[in-house]
Design a binder for these strands. Sequence first.
DNA 1: ATTTTAGTTGAGAATGAGTCGCAATTAAAA
DNA 2: TTTTAATTGCGACTCATTCTCAACTAAAAT
Lengths: 144, 144
Amino acid sequence: MITKESIFESHLKTKGLKLTPQRKAILEEVFASHEHFDIEELFANLRNKGKRISRATIYRTLPLLVESNLIKEAFRYQDKVSYEHIFGHGHHDHLLCIKCGRIIEFMDEKIEELQEAVCKKYGFKPTEHRLGIKGYCKKCISHE
Amino acid sequence: MITKESIFESHLKTKGLKLTPQRKAILEEVFASHEHFDIEELFANLRNKGKRISRATIYRTLPLLVESNLIKEAFRYQDKVSYEHIFGHGHHDHLLCIKCGRIIEFMDEKIEELQEAVCKKYGFKPTEHRLGIKGYCKKCISHE
DNA sequence: ATTTTAGTTGAGAATGAGTCGCAATTAAAA
DNA sequence: TTTTAATTGCGACTCATTCTCAACTAAAAT
């Protein structure tokens, strides 16, 4: 069975790296919720569970999770990078409320196709794409 | 006649600010080429033309140009923010080659419409959207 | 004309996210 | 048991960006 642990471990193996307790703890914490998260939150959550893992280790581990295709950088908001899961989640884009910070995920197959078509037109081989729409969510419009 | 100067000046006026020589020089330099630029480049270009304007002033001025709707943040690449013109240029999105750094601008009316539709669906009032596709450009694919 | 008032600037200090060097630690392989 | 190589935490460091502040406009008020 393919689990996030097995994916992570095999990626580490290809780089001659080990699945240490710290890396395992970070992996678990990352997948402990389904929310977007940033590094500072992750650090704090680990602390709250008594895991004293240094920021440096977290900063070193997240790129490994990204390379493993388990998570990805989702967007930036107020100069912080937010990450989200890939494992167990389909691709989607984001609406981001600039007033309350709410994040709405959406997925539009037609938009995806059109993006493909654009790439084809320019002979471009995409590896990643990101569509982010900033504005005001329903609640924040009505409370204005 | 509406010029970038008049737009900038009237925006400044609404905030009780003045169009100083420094701000004017920055405005001109920003529009001196049609390329994307980052702050360090702008600073260097001004220096090369003998204008010794401090980084602080540039950092203070760019947000004013953004508020004036003359320029906008286009994308981030290697932790640098790239800006581009709005004045005199239609909206477009970007293909960014992660090998050679080439930027291809594109615009797809259909994608724009679909984004509008998504916003409508969620009762979301968009103020800005950004679609960036990273990958390999034509040249970099064939040279691999 | 002189003074007030308020915005502006440059220099450098301060901030803060992210990175790096290093000595101590761990664990697998020999 | 020894060797070897990866790993960790700490704190120093970097680098973009922001802030502070004293000196400097320039327009408005007197």
